[in-house]
């Protein structure tokens, strides 16, 4: 009798586990549909606000982006909360000899949850993509402004013309050629951003070179992994032909890896040098400082 009632009890739990799992997957599916609908609706709105934000620093856009991402997270959190609750419930309920029932439930639900997270991450990347700034345009605006104002100033003391001889991105003293008075020239807010704009624009202009370097780097690690895998497999290999064949492939991969590795610093230096050349050209007054930064990055071999 005892065993019979225990079996009935187990049957009930198994049934409950399956029902809960099915319900959880239906729940996940509904959440995923909502997540997609919401994100798809938000993307064009974010793109629009990125272009037309009345705030000069695009703070409205950043706040909206943050709240949209927050909503996507809230969907995943909702699924996770339910998962945790059910997992804990069955963890306490399913006895040791039927543990695999619990583990299967947990792992399958976790897989479903991870699928939802992948969808969330995909849309977060899409949302990140709406945060674009055309630094070429920002720089053009600075150049145009300089052209339009460089001859517009007169000494505050004697009214003689004072030429703004180059783009100054910090407030500076300009001397009047007629009365020698030190005038203080303060650049516009947009020109004060020149150093930052310069770096971002240089990065935009050299993104393809960075990509080339990254791809080569990835290739190096793929070749290395293949080679490593083959080397490991040799340990348990007894067939002579296979050993010879694998050794040959390992040698080929070693050669390939060396060639790719040799290219890496060349590609990195080409990227970094081009980036800093652009930055120097945009803001030449900071060239000395840029070069010290360049030297550091080249030595440390990581990209900015």
């Amino acid at each position: 009798m005892f065993n019979l009632s225990k079996n009935v009890e187990i049957e009930k739990v198994i049934d409950e586990v399956h029902t809960t799992k099915d319900r959880f997957f239906v729940f996940l599916q509904k959440l995923e549909i909502r997540l997609k609908e919401f994100a798809e609706e938000a993307l064009p709105e974010l793109t629009d606000l990125n272009k037309n934000d009345p705030d000069g620093n695009k703070l409205g856009f950043y706040r909206m982006k943050s709240s949209v991402e927050g909503q996507l997270d809230s969907i995943v959190q909702k699924a996770r909360d339910v998962f945790e609750e059910k997992k804990n419930y069955f963890e306490g309920k399913i006895e040791h000899e039927h543990r695999s029932l619990y583990y299967d439930f947990r792992n399958q639900c976790l897989d479903g949850l991870q699928k939802l997270e992948i969808t969330r991450n995909y849309y977060k990347n899409q949302i990140e993509g709406t945060d674009s700034q055309d630094y070429e345009m920002v720089y053009q605006a600075i150049l145009e402004e300089y052209d339009s104002i460089k001859n517009n100033f007169n000494c505050v003391q004697c009214s003689s013309p004072i030429l703004i001889d180059k783009i100054y991105f910090t407030t500076t003293y300009l001397s009047c050629a007629a009365c020698f008075t030190q005038n203080t020239f303060e650049p516009s807010s947009q020109t004060k951003q020149l150093e930052h704009v310069g770096r971002s624009l240089a990065e935009q202009r050299t993104a393809h070179l960075l990509q080339e370097y990254k791809e080569q780097s990835k290739l190096a690690s793929v070749i290395f992994s293949k080679k490593h895998e083959l080397e490991m497999s040799l340990a348990g290999e007894n067939l002579k032909d296979v050993i010879v064949q694998k050794t040959k492939i390992i040698q080929e991969l070693t050669a390939q890896n060396e060639a790719v590795e040799k290219e890496l610093p060349i590609l990195y230096e080409r990227y970094l040098r081009t980036l800093f050349d652009h930055w120097n050209a945009i803001n030449p007054t900071m060239k000395n400082e840029h070069e010290k930064f360049y030297t550091r990055l080249l030595k440390e071999n990581y990209y900015i």
Binding site: L49, D53, P54, D55, G56, N57, L59, G60, F61, R63, M64, S67, E145, I149, F153, N154, C155, V156, Q157, I162, I164, L174, T181, Q182, N183, T184, F185, E186, P187, S188, S189, Q190, T191
Partner: peptide, 20 residues
């Protein structure tokens, strides 16, 4: 997002100027 007050107030674009 667009109607709330930003910390430090809205960005005011200043034009270039010369003073002594």
């Amino acid at each position: 997002a667009v109607t709330q007050k930003s910390y430090g107030g809205a960005l005011v674009e200043q034009e270039a100027k010369l003073t002594v």
